[in-house]
């Protein structure tokens, strides 16, 4: 077995193209995933004492509905493989839209499907991270806030939020890294991300050792950047 360093050098431009796409999917995906995760995570504990006073009147059924919808979303996404979600979104969803709404031209770009898949998948897991961090905030602090006469929004923004965010960072780092690596699964819907590029180079020159080693190292570098960014945020926060 011979190891050709030149193979790696030749493959780098194509692999970097793939890596760029991996970044795009990851960053857009976890950005959207954070928004979905915060909404669904708070939604699962809407109307409970973890977020202040218990609701009155119309807000009682609204909060119950919010909890059920959020829980249904989280369990549905966590309970199915991400690769099935990607295939469904890319192949089945456009068929459904065409049939139901008779939009003949409706298609889904592979890249769009990839980004949305990461968004909803990461969103479901981030929802649980958000919920876990928020319910870990000591009940006495919530009561102290309420007893000062502040609103629920102020309570979440200034008391629960800052304390919960600090506890979210380590598990969020975990999830961001998982989401980045999950983008390699989009090889099945033909997105030209890093793994797909590696596969294509490999199919033309059969240099498995050099190519997959290089691909692995590029992934490791990217996940390290994510991990270091989060560590940086963690250090910058006040310690209490």
């Amino acid at each position: 077995m011979d190891f050709e360093f030149s193979v790696i050098v030749e493959s780098l431009p194509m692999l970097f193209e793939g890596a760029k796409l991996t970044w795009v999917i990851t960053l857009a995906g976890i950005g959207g995933g954070m928004v979905i995760g915060i909404l669904a995570g708070l939604g699962r504990i809407a109307g409970t004492p973890y977020l202040g006073d218990e609701p009155h009147g119309i807000f009682i059924p609204v909060s119950v509905l919010t909890r059920y919808l959020s829980a249904g979303f989280v369990e549905g996404i966590r309970g199915t493989p991400i690769i099935v979600q990607a295939m469904f979104l890319y192949f089945a969803f456009p068929m459904l839209v065409r049939a139901l709404f008779t939009i003949d031209q409706f298609r889904m770009e592979a890249l769009t499907a990839a980004v949305i898949t990461i968004m909803i998948n990461a969103g479901a897991y981030i929802a649980e991270i958000v919920r876990g961090s928020v319910i870990s905030v000591h009940k006495g602090l919530i009561e102290a806030g309420l007893s000062l006469g502040i609103s629920r929004f102020q309570l979440i923004a200034h008391v629960i939020g800052p304390i919960a965010i600090r506890r979210m960072i380590p598990p969020l780092g975990n999830q961001f890294i998982i989401s980045l690596k999950d983008t390699s699964l989009f090889i099945v819907i033909g997105v030209g991300e890093l793994t797909r590029q590696g596969q294509e180079i490999m199919a033309s020159n059969f240099r498995a050792l050099e190519i997959w080693l290089t691909v692995a190292i590029i992934y490791l570098l990217m996940t390290s950047v994510l991990a270091m960014t989060l560590r940086h945020f963690e250090r910058k926060m006040k310690i209490f």
Binding site: H138, G140, L141, E143, A144, L148, K238, F240
Partner: peptide
């Protein structure tokens, strides 16, 4: 106003 047994100051 209320003062609690466990103080409950905002730690941040």
């Amino acid at each position: 106003g209320m003062v609690f047994q466990q103080f409950n100051l905002f730690p941040h």
